[in-house]
């Protein structure tokens, strides 16, 4: 049968994650833990929203953890991330304290932006995560500008820009990648192709099969990877980051992945068929990687439970901090307009 995105379900049989025999167990477990943490934080954010602990909305990245972690895991503190609406967890991977991440959702005075941006539109200036606007592809343009600045300053710092499949259609995407190609900028464009832009399927977004081919028009490499295979994303990202650091220019990495839930917490996603969702859930990144780690005897139920307990404790503490934090005073609304 064919899904609404035009891909056959048979093509999407569950697979095992690839394994890099050469990687240290520390790295493999670190990647796993990071994905697990992202998943648990994200699920908690959804629960808190459903409990009306905060208003607005939330854009879950559950199902897409491998693309976020694989791309951002090796970034240094001085590297940059240009996130979009679905990349709240990229702050967590970069190392933003969890309490600030929940304070951001709660729009409290303790959030990095002191309650200005909508939930999940989070940046963390101390670690160079750019506070995002909602405008699709806005950040990948600003991120490209940051990459220009870094190059001019002669730094070996890089930028990772996250965006969705929908973002590849807007003019700014073309302008940014074209410019980055001309100036060989130190930026990695990570497209999380989750086959949907809100309710619009990929076939109405583009006539190409692999979005990575677009890089060809800009004169730099584009690769498509299984975005639910952490090691595939990791390997491609490590190569792209090394390339960028060495001054060899940008890379476009298309990660084929899937969001489990609706576009946001208020979207029942009725435009998707059950079979598509179920097929993709079977391919989800954490379970796949878990199998590999269990086979390699790096992980067992006990270890996993201990990890989860640690993360839960951290989340509980962070949520408590967020809940107890005060709202900003109304008079603060006029702060930070002018430098």
């Amino acid at each position: 049968m064919t899904t609404k995105t035009g891909r056959s379900v048979a093509e999407m049989e569950p697979e095992k994650a690839s394994q890099s025999a050469s990687q240290s167990s520390e790295l493999l477990l670190g990647l796993y833990r990071s994905m697990l943490k992202c998943r648990m934080c994200d699920e908690k954010a959804r629960v808190l929203f459903k409990q009306s602990k905060y208003g607005g909305n939330f854009y879950s990245a559950v199902g897409q953890e491998a693309t976020e972690v694989g791309a951002a895991y090796t970034l240094r503190d001085d590297d940059w991330i240009a996130p979009s609406h679905r990349d709240w967890i990229s702050n967590i991977i970069k190392g933003a304290p969890l309490k600030f991440c929940y304070a951001q959702l709660f729009a409290k005075a303790t959030s990095p932006d002191r309650g200005r941006s909508s939930p999940a539109h989070m940046g963390y200036p101390p670690l160079n995560v750019i506070t995002p606007a909602s405008s699709i592809a806005g950040q990948l343009n600003v991120g490209t500008g940051v990459a220009l600045g870094l190059k001019k300053l002669g730094r070996d710092t890089v930028v990772v820009a996250f965006f969705g499949d929908g973002a590849t259609s807007i003019g700014g995407f073309h302008e940014a990648l074209n410019f980055a190609g001309v100036h060989r900028l130190p930026i990695i464009y990570v497209c999380q192709n989750n086959l949907w832009a809100e309710s619009v399927p990929l076939r109405l977004q583009t006539a190409v099969t692999d979005l990575s081919v677009k890089a060809q028009a800009y004169g730099f490499p584009g690769v498509t990877v299984d975005g639910n295979d952490i090691m595939a994303v990791y390997d491609a990202s490590v190569r792209a980051i090394a390339r960028a650091r060495a001054g060899e220019g940008p890379t476009l990495i298309e990660c084929k992945t899937y969001r489990w839930y609706g576009h946001s917490e208020i979207d029942p996603a009725k435009y998707r068929i059950k079979e598509e969702v179920e097929a993709w859930k079977k391919k989800e990144p954490i379970g796949r990687f878990e199998k590999v780690l269990v086979e390699q005897k790096l992980l067992n139920d006990q270890k996993k439970a201990a990890m989860a307990a640690e993360i839960t404790a951290e989340i509980d503490e962070a949520v408590e901090f967020a809940e107890k934090s005060p709202y900003p005073d109304a008079s603060e609304a006029t702060d930070f307009v002018w430098a």
Partner: peptide, 25 residues
């Protein structure tokens, strides 16, 4: 006009939306 998104949504707001975390001189 092709630059309005960047001027209005980014330049005018980046300082505000990051509570002074990023400046745009």
């Amino acid at each position: 006009t092709p630059a309005m998104d960047q001027i209005i949504q980014q330049a005018a707001k980046i300082r505000y939306r990051s509570a002074g975390g990023f400046d745009c001189p």
